[in-house]
C-alpha cells in the first residue's frame, strides 16, 4: 500500500540518486492524494472557481441581468477610476477603515486569546464565551444604535448632558465627524470572532514541554517567551488570522449600513463593498459590480502578500 502513496516531503529526500519521475508518473503515483481531495475539489470547482471566473468575465461586460451581457472591454474599470467620484470616496474610506480595524482587530484577537490561555480551563471557557458573545449574538449590535441615538434620549447624549459636558445632543450617526470613528469602534467590538477562536485552540495545542525547555534555555519573562517560543509555534495560525482580518476589514459593509443607514451623510462611511452591493443588488449593474469585486480582490491579495512577508520575520 505505502509504495503507491505519495511520500511526505521529509521522506522524499531519501531517493536522491534515482532519476526524477516524469510528471505523469508522479501524478499516477499520487492517486490516493487525489482521491482525498476529490470530493472537496469537485464541489469547490463548481461552486467557487467557476463562478469566480464567470464574474471576472462579467467585469468586462455591461450586464443588467435582463439582457445578455455585452462586451465593453476595460469600460467598467475606466469608469470606476475616471468617472465614478463616489467610488473614489469609497476607496479612501475603505483604506482608512481597513488600515485601522485590520491590524487592531488582529492584535486584539491575539492578545485576548493569549491572556485567556493563561487561565484555568473553566475560567477560560467562560471568558471565551463572553468575548465571543458579540459575534455569536446575531444582530445584538443594535444596542449601539441606542447608545449613540442622536436625540437627548440616547444613552450617551443623556449622560453627557447630565454631567454638563455638552449643551446640546451630538448627532452621532449623522455627523460625518463622528460616523467613521463609531463604525470603527463597533467593528472592533465585534471583531473577536473566527481568528479569536482559532488562536485559542492553537495556543492550547502548543506542547507544555516547549515552554519548560525554553525556561531552561534562559527565557526570562512572558514577552521573551511570546517572541521566541509562542509566536513561531503559532505562525500558521497567524497567517490564518491575518487573512481573516484582511477579508473582514476590506469587505466591511453590513455593520456600516445598519449603523449609519443605506445613504450615509456625505458618503462619510461609504465603503467599496457597499458600493459593490449597491450596484449588484440595487441597480442591477452586474458587470460594474464584478469590476469592483475584481479591484477589491486584487487589493486584498496585495495586502496579504505584504503581511505574509512581515509574518516571516517573526521570532528572528
Amino acid at each position: 500500500m505505502s509504495s503507491e502513496v505519495a511520500r511526505p516531503t521529509v521522506g522524499s529526500k531519501i531517493s536522491v540518486n534515482v532519476k526524477p519521475d516524469s510528471l505523469l508518473t508522479r501524478m499516477k503515483k499520487s492517486w490516493v492524494s487525489y482521491l482525498f481531495i476529490a470530493p472537496f475539489m469537485l464541489l469547490f470547482s463548481v461552486f467557487t472557481i467557476l463562478p469566480v471566473l464567470i464574474s471576472i468575465g462579467f467585469s468586462f461586460t455591461y450586464f443588467n441581468m435582463l439582457e445578455p451581457p455585452t462586451w465593453i472591454g476595460w469600460g467598467n474599470y475606466l469608469r470606476l477610476f475616471l468617472a465614478d467620484d463616489v467610488f473614489l470616496i469609497a476607496v479612501k474610506n475603505t483604506l482608512f477603515f481597513a488600515a485601522i480595524t485590520g491590524p487592531l482587530s488582529y492584535f486584539m484577537c491575539f492578545i485576548f486569546a493569549w491572556f485567556i490561555n493563561e487561565l484555568q480551563p473553566k475560567v477560560r471557557a467562560f471568558l471565551t464565551l463572553l468575548f465571543y458573545a458579540p459575534s455569536i449574538s446575531g444582530n445584538a449590535f443594535i444596542v449601539w444604535t441606542l447608545i449613540f441615538h442622536r436625540d437627548t434620549y440616547g444613552y450617551l447624549n443623556a449622560q453627557l448632558l447630565y454631567f454638563g459636558l455638552i449643551d446640546r445632543p451630538i448627532q452621532w450617526l449623522v455627523d460625518p465627524d463622528w460616523m467613521m470613528p463609531i463604525c470603527i469602534l463597533v467593528t472592533l467590538w465585534m471583531s473577536l470572532g473566527t481568528s479569536f477562536l482559532v488562536f485559542i485552540a492553537g495556543l492550547q495545542g502548543i506542547s507544555p514541554s516547549l515552554y519548560e525547555a525554553g525556561a531552561i534555555d534562559g527565557i526570562k519573562n512572558r514577552w521573551q517567551e511570546l517572541w521566541y517560543l509562542t509566536l513561531p509555534a503559532m505562525r500558521g495560525y497567524m497567517m490564518f488570522g491575518a487573512i481573516m482580518s484582511i477579508t473582514g476589514s476590506f469587505q466591511a459593509a453590513s455593520i456600516l449600513t445598519q449603523l449609519t443607514g443605506p445613504t450615509p451623510t456625505d458618503y462619510a462611511t461609504w465603503t467599496v463593498m457597499q458600493h459593490l452591493l449597491d450596484y449588484g443588488n440595487v441597480r442591477y449593474e452586474m458587470g460594474y459590480a464584478s469590476a469592483i469585486a475584481v479591484v477589491l480582490f486584487l487589493t486584498m491579495v496585495g495586502t496579504q502578500k505584504l503581511v505574509q512577508r512581515l509574518l516571516n520575520k517573526i521570532g528572528t
Partner: peptide
C-alpha cells in the same frame, strides 16, 4: 494558493453563476 485566494473574492457577485448552476 487557490483556496487562500478564494477567501478574498466577494461572494456577492458570484450569486448569479451559482444560481444558474
Amino acid at each position: 494558493e487557490a483556496i487562500v485566494l478564494s477567501l478574498m473574492f466577494a461572494s456577492a457577485v458570484t450569486n448569479i453563476p451559482n444560481y444558474l448552476t
